[in-house]
Structures are given as structure tokens and as C-alpha cells.
């Protein structure tokens, strides 16, 4: 049984040639994994078997890296490096992009080997995180705020949290002068900081600033100085906004409606404001919330389900807008 477990960890039939994971890592393998290994001994060798989209596969994973807890990241990286080096020896002068792509491919296949019964949802989480890290990109929803990063240093005392919350509030109708006042700065200081924060995002090729901006944009209600600022909103608008944040189907419906509106030459954001009293900034706040949840709890089935629902709603609203405009240009063309 133990031999089989090691074989699974190493992911290669040529056991003698493989570096052994540390005893500590092997001992840390959960009882569940050992039980699985026992069962596997009795079965034929099988290729990856999906447990079903979004199903909990019962294994333990690191919430940040999404690696299985029965091995260390150092072991994983060492094995990927070994495979990449082996591949490089047979390749004719690969360039940096080739090597990076090879690393991602070997990493993804190794992950399946070392996490034999991984669910597709769990694999997708890892795939996204691992690929982005290899390419040097931050991942939305799991990007850390590193205060030592010079791109995150406050500008004239205005932090990225300030700037993102301010952007959210302004998109909901709060004036720039109100923002500057609440932040305790004068208008020229706010405007220069605002311009420079945009420049920071433009120069950041890791997308760290942009991702964190998105996160803080969605947390604007909790901002200590700006959280209380709000443009005038009707009672029905407030109720609709509440529903938007709690009823995913309502959110997807309005996304579909907005998209259909643009296709019919309407201002989709304005259409939602007029019909539901929800400002663009508030809408985007809710969008960030759902996007963060989606990335944290990657569930392919659920994603597909809501995507289909949104497409269905988009069709319905497209038909409505077409009817309001006297129909589509080619409605009179019959087969």
C-alpha cells in the first residue's frame, strides 16, 4: 500500500529513477488518501477519472495554491523542473516561451497524477492559479496586498483602497468634490492622484494593481471615509439593489438585459438605472462580489448554468427591444 502511495506521489512507473518525497511529506498524507491508495491497488491502472463537476472529491487542498496537502509545493516544483529539464535535453534550442509553456503543461499533468481523484472544479482552480503564476500574472480574488510593492504605495496619501472606493462611488453618481472632501484633500490633489493611479495600472504587467483595484472597488461600502457616501436613490432602487446582491438569477437577468440593450443601440447601464434605479457603480460592486465568489469556489457546472440562464434572458430581452423598435431589419425575410 505504502509503495503504491509513493508511486502515485511520484507519478511515474520508473520508481527507482524518481526523487523520493521527504518522509515527512509522505507521513503527512491523509488517512483518506491512504485509503484511496489501498483501493486503487485492487483496481486496474486508470487514467484520470472525473468525480463530477463541482463535487467535493474529499481530498484536502491548500486554499491559496490549491495543491494537495499530501505533498509539499517544493516537491511538486522539483518534479516539474526535473521533467522540464528532461524535455529540454531533447528539444532543439527552446526559447523562454517554449520553456514556460512546457512548465505549465508538465505542472498541470503532474497535478492530475499526484491528485488522482481530483474533481474538475478543483483542477480548474489549480490550473488558473498555476498558469497565471507561471506567466507572472496575479489572479483576481486571490491577489495579496504586498505593502512593499512600490506600485501599491499611496499617491499623495491616497491609497489604492481610497482610489478604488472613490471610483465605485463616482460610478454611482457621487461627485468628485464630495470624494475629495471626504478624503480630506483638495481637488487638484485628488485629480492628480486619480490620474497617477490609472498610470500605475497601465505600467503593472502582473495585473496586481488592477486585481486589487477590482477587489477594493467591490468593498467600497466598508471604506471608513467613503463608505457612507451615496448618491440619492429611490426606495425601489434600494430594494432592487438588495435583490441584485442576494438573488443570482436576478443579477444574471439584468446582465443579459444590459447586453441586449447595447445590441439594440440603447445605453444598457442607463436602461438599468431608469428601470430598476440601480447605478452603474452599485451594479459593478455586485458583479465584483459574484466574480470573487466564483473564483474562490470554482464550480464549472454552476458557471455553465448561470451562463446559459444569462444567454436565455439576453434572447428574451433582445426580442423585447426588437419589438419596441418595430422589429429587426430582416424580420420580413422568410425561408
Amino acid at each position: 500500500m505504502f509503495k503504491k502511495l509513493l508511486k502515485d506521489l511520484l507519478g511515474n512507473d520508473e520508481e527507482k529513477k524518481e526523487p523520493q518525497p521527504s518522509a515527512n511529506a509522505a507521513n503527512n498524507a491523509t488517512a483518506h488518501n491512504q485509503h484511496e491508495a489501498e483501493e486503487e491497488e485492487e483496481e486496474e491502472e486508470e487514467e484520470y477519472e472525473d468525480n463530477g463537476y463541482g463535487d467535493d472529491d474529499g481530498n484536502a487542498y491548500d486554499p491559496q495554491t490549491h495543491h494537495g496537502l499530501h505533498y509539499t509545493q517544493a516537491q511538486f516544483d522539483a518534479e516539474v523542473d526535473r521533467r522540464v529539464n528532461e524535455w529540454k535535453a531533447d528539444e532543439e534550442d527552446p526559447d523562454d516561451a517554449d520553456i514556460r509553456n512546457a512548465k505549465i503543461n508538465f505542472g498541470n499533468s503532474l497535478y492530475r497524477e499526484w491528485n488522482r481523484n481530483v474533481s474538475e472544479s478543483q483542477y480548474m482552480k489549480f490550473n488558473q492559479q498555476y498558469g497565471s503564476t507561471a506567466l507572472g500574472y496575479a489572479v483576481f480574488g486571490s491577489t495579496k496586498h504586498d505593502a512593499a510593492n512600490p506600485l501599491l504605495e499611496p499617491i499623495h496619501g491616497i491609497t489604492l483602497q481610497d482610489y478604488a472606493a472613490a471610483s465605485s462611488k463616482m460610478a454611482s453618481g457621487v461627485g468628485a468634490n464630495q470624494i475629495a472632501k471626504a478624503l480630506g484633500v483638495e481637488q487638484p490633489v485628488w485629480e492628480e492622484a486619480s490620474t497617477l493611479w490609472i498610470s500605475r495600472m497601465q505600467q503593472d504587467n502582473t495585473f496586481t494593481v488592477t486585481n486589487l483595484f477590482g477587489t477594493y472597488f467591490g468593498e467600497s461600502a466598508q471604506h471608513p471615509k467613503l463608505g457612507g457616501l451615496a448618491a440619492a436613490q429611490s426606495e425601489s432602487g434600494k430594494a432592487n439593489l438588495e435583490k441584485l446582491a442576494t438573488d443570482r438569477y436576478f443579477y444574471e437577468e439584468l446582465c443579459g438585459a444590459r447586453q441586449a440593450a447595447y445590441e439594440y443601440g440603447l445605453d444598457g447601464a442607463q436602461w438599468i438605472m431608469e428601470n430598476y434605479g440601480i447605478a452603474l457603480g452599485d451594479f459593478q460592486n455586485v458583479a465584483v462580489k459574484y466574480m470573487t465568489e466564483r473564483n474562490a469556489e470554482w464550480n464549472s457546472n454552476e458557471i455553465m448554468h448561470f451562463q446559459n440562464y444569462q444567454e436565455q434572458k439576453q434572447k428574451e430581452y433582445a426580442a423585447k427591444f426588437a419589438a419596441e423598435q418595430g422589429g429587426n431589419v430582416a424580420d420580413d425575410v422568410e425561408f
Binding site: 445590441e263 439594440y264 443601440g265 445605453d267
Partner: peptide, 29 residues
């Protein structure tokens, strides 16, 4: 230039509707 972009988007939407009608009909017929 939001008015212009809405107009452009609306015209593109009509083109998409025509293409969609063609595709739907190809599927059925």
C-alpha cells in the same frame, strides 16, 4: 462619443440578428 458608440452598437446588433437568423434557419432547414 457615447451617442456614436450606441449607434454603432445598434447597427452591429442588427447585423448579428441577421446572422443569427441565417444560422437558426440553417439548423432547422
Amino acid at each position: 462619443k457615447r451617442t456614436y458608440h450606441r449607434f454603432k452598437s445598434g447597427m452591429d446588433g442588427q447585423l448579428t440578428a441577421i446572422r443569427k437568423k441565417m444560422q437558426d434557419t440553417a439548423e432547422v432547414q
